[in-house]
Nucleic acid binder design. Structure first.
Length: 434
RNA sequence: GUGACUAUAGUUUAGUGGUAAAACUCCGGUUUGUGGAACCGGUAUCGAGGGUCCGAUUCCCUCUAGUCACCCCA
């Protein structure tokens, strides 16, 4: 039967979003489960919210560009402006602000939301993605920053990565701002433009950077050397707000190193895009040359709740995207080989043996084994092929022999080993299958 | 949003101004009967729409989608 082309519905997914076939979903679940495990290990509790938010939530926050051009926004039937959440931070800030007096602090929360952005898609940048969001509220000391960065480290290690696979680059907005105002003596506009320029530094040549910087500052720009003791350094450290920010940064880095995370380093070019960061910021980089890029990052944002008219709540958090995570795991060969969640497929030689197949299936399910029955009425060879294709690791063939007696064979397809057993031998079955 | 490149069967690719080829997959059949087999057969209005031309899958334009860079990066 031919359907006219014009009436055919495309099988493509919507622009910029993904279909998760069982194999993809299994990768996704693997990643999400490990994320949740690490967050919970550190004492964080899971929350969630609707993907719909009133648009004003995003207007109130940072750059207008994101709201105007990079969100899915629409007007609902009741003339309300609605936006599909492009990030979780405003939502969590809203939720914390709403119940601030009822919550116990420090509050440690995490979520794995799907987020939407209306952007031109390219690899690793889609219109819908998932992200682990972790935030701790109510700790103003650097212990919170250290905890969050430790968790970022633990997260990658949970997947089997080790220190040489990645590097955690740390900087401080507070230090940068102090240097801008008290050392370089930039005005507000120069500070803003220099911040953006430094953010982009890694992507440009040193010559271009110097030229751009000179345009903004009006003279040759040179970073204050914070790594070495020098007259210049001593002089800068004599300025209280610079000294304080620098000491804070040093404490974070030294403590992390002392606690077994050697791959942390200060990098003055770590800025992070959003304006709301107020203190330590960090970014994790893949060291593999094939994927040498920023994996994820976060930092301290103490002032965000102000938009809800609440007094400020010190907050540190970070977010990791599912796409970058998966790329990292692929490049470092850390993804497990796909296996169906179905453990056994029962191949039935003829439909007259369906009863016998069901008896065996039920017995196995009682032992918490995931079993499917192949009712296709095809040849056993084809049924086995189907099991292989679906990555189901074990099969049982049910025919006249199995229907007569109680015994049946379980076959492991990967190496063709077989055991003969009955439903009463559950220990033997579980030992073989699990 | 701007620019560049790409688009042929389910998949990966070949090819041509005279309506298309191969491999694998899938479906049906034969053979076989506890596994990726063999054989036969089937599956493409060459991304969509328009234009040039006697004739377009091939050339041109628009659109759509993908990829890359810019932008942006929660």
């Amino acid at each position: 039967m031919k359907v006219p082309k014009s009436s055919k519905i495309s099988t493509d997914s919507y622009k910029g979003v993904r279909d998760f076939y069982p194999e993809d979903e299994s990768v996704q679940k693997y990643i999400f489960d490990k994320w949740a495990k690490v967050a919970e290990k550190f004492g964080y509790n899971r929350y969630n919210a609707s993907i719909l938010e009133p648009t004003e939530l995003y207007h109130a926050k940072s750059g207008e560009e994101m709201v105007n051009e990079q969100t899915y926004s629409f007007v609902d039937r009741g003339d309300r402006e609605v936006t599909l959440r492009p990030e979780m931070t405003p939502t969590i800030a809203r939720m914390i602000a709403a119940k601030k007096r009822d919550l116990g602090f420090p509050a440690r929360w995490y979520s794995i939301p799907n987020l939407f952005r209306y952007e031109r898609p390219q690899r690793g940048r889609l219109r819908e993605h998932w992200q682990l969001n972790v935030d701790v509220f109510g700790i103003s000391s650097v212990e919170a920053d250290i905890e969050i960065i430790s968790m970022a480290d633990a997260l990658l290690k949970e997947f089997g990565a080790s220190a040489p696979d990645f590097v955690i680059k740390i900087s401080s907005r507070k230090l940068l701002n102090s240097l801008f105002s008290s050392w370089y003596e930039f005005n507000d506009e120069q500070s803003m433009r220099m911040q953006k320029l430094i953010d982009k530094k890694a992507k440009m040549s040193p010559e271009d950077f110097d030229a751009e910087a000179e345009k903004i500052v009006g003279k040759a720009f040179k970073f204050l050397n914070l790594g070495k003791e020098s007259d210049e350094y001593e002089e800068a450290m004599a300025i209280p707000n610079i000294r304080e920010a620098k000491q804070e940064l040093d404490t974070v880095i030294e403590t992390l190193k002392r606690r077994g995370i050697p791959n942390v380093e200060y990098d003055e070019t770590i800025i992070r895009g959003f304006d709301y960061y107020t203190g330590i910021v960090f970014e994790v980089f893949d060291t593999n040359p094939k994927n040498n890029r920023s994996l994820f990052g976060g930092g301290r944002y103490d002032d965000l709740l102000k938009i809800f008219g609440e007094e400020k709540v010190p907050t540190v958090g970070f977010g990791v995207g599912d796409v970058t995570m998966k790329d990292f795991l692929e490049v470092h060969n850390l993804l497990p080989i796909y296996k169906s969640t179905t453990e056994i497929m029962i191949c039935v030689m003829d439909n007259e043996f369906n009863e016998a197949a069901n008896t065996i299936a039920e017995g196995l399910r009682n032992e918490k084994i995931n079993v499917s029955i192949n009712y296709s009425e095809k040849k056993i060879g084809d049924q086995i092929k189907s099991a292989v294709k679906q990555s189901i690791p074990y099969i049982i063939v049910v025919g006249p022999v199995e229907a007569e007696g109680k015994a049946f064979n379980i076959k492991r397809l990967s190496d063709s080993t077989e055991i003969t057993t009955t439903l009463s031998e559950s220990a033997k079955i579980i030992n073989f299958v699990k």
